[in-house]
């Protein structure tokens, strides 16, 4: 891997995003609006304290999954990827470049969403706010890497969109937002133990509800990060210099 080329790729991707201000605005504002709506719906109940933190993890994950899988698919279809693959650009330069660029966007998105949830919606955070942002960032990177991987199996934008219910919704359902994971049937419980999103939701709930859980949070994040690394490696296998 060549860090200079990864950075050049990240800068190029950010430059592309910059030419699309509407996407940037939606990216940064929509999560906060939805969190605000959620807080409003659950006024005078305890529910927002449980759902609110999970949302902070879900948004970066879902949004980054979508934009990464669609932009990489566009790159595959427009011929720019084929061109890059005939040039001295490594697969990891490409993947790390994308992860860096969208990771940076995710940090901005998370900062705004966390600030809005805490200061406007009154979400009480017992643990460190920095840890909360770190969790959101790792979630975003997970979404980016899953999107990179998924885009290899789609040939149209329609298919990419369908991957969201297929790959993302089960993780949300099994992640412990609707029913605490401890109360699920054994089979589902053990499946959810293996899914990355379960661990990031656990991490978020621990940061929010306890001030002494930093060690546990980092352990959960470690599992999510392992998933992200695994997906980048799988993604690099799907990037081929030679195609049929």
């Amino acid at each position: 891997m060549n860090p200079r080329l990864a950075l050049a790729t990240a800068a190029r991707v950010l430059n592309q995003v910059r030419h699309d201000p509407r996407t940037v605005a939606l990216l940064l504002v929509v999560p906060s609006l939805l969190i605000g709506l959620m807080a409003w719906i659950f006024t005078n109940t305890k529910t927002f304290d449980i759902v609110g933190p999970a949302l902070l993890g879900l948004f970066p994950f879902i949004v980054m999954f979508l934009i990464t899988s669609i932009t990489t698919l566009r790159e595959r279809r427009s011929g720019t990827l084929e061109r890059l693959m005939t040039m001295p650009l490594g697969k990891f330069d490409f993947l790390v470049g994308y992860t860096l660029a969208f990771g940076l966007l995710a940090i901005l998105q998370s900062l705004i969403a966390v600030a809005y949830a805490v200061w406007v919606c009154g979400l009480a955070v017992s643990g460190s706010a920095w840890l909360l942002i770190l969790v959101a960032l790792v979630n975003a990177i997970l979404g980016t890497t899953l999107g990179l991987f998924a885009s290899a199996f789609a040939t149209t934008e329609f298919q990419v969109i369908q991957f969201m219910p297929a790959l993302v919704f089960p993780q949300i359902l099994l992640g412990g937002i609707f029913v605490p994971r401890a109360q699920m049937p054994d089979v589902l419980r053990s499946i959810s133990d293996w899914l990355p999103l379960s661990h990031s939701i656990d991490a978020l709930q621990k940061v929010i509800s306890r001030s002494d859980a930093s060690g546990e949070v980092l352990r959960e994040l470690g599992i999510v990060a392992l998933w992200a690394v695994g997906l980048v490696v799988l993604g690099s296998i799907t990037l081929r210099r030679r195609t049929p």
């Binding site: 080329l5 190029r12 011929g79 720019t80 061109r83 650009l89």
Partner: peptide, 20 residues
């Protein structure tokens, strides 16, 4: 098909590929 990035300027396209 022209394999360049539609959402970059001509110069920005060339700058990226020149770096690569």
């Amino acid at each position: 098909a022209p394999s360049v990035y539609d959402d970059l300027t001509v110069t920005q396209n060339l700058r990226y590929f020149a770096q690569v």
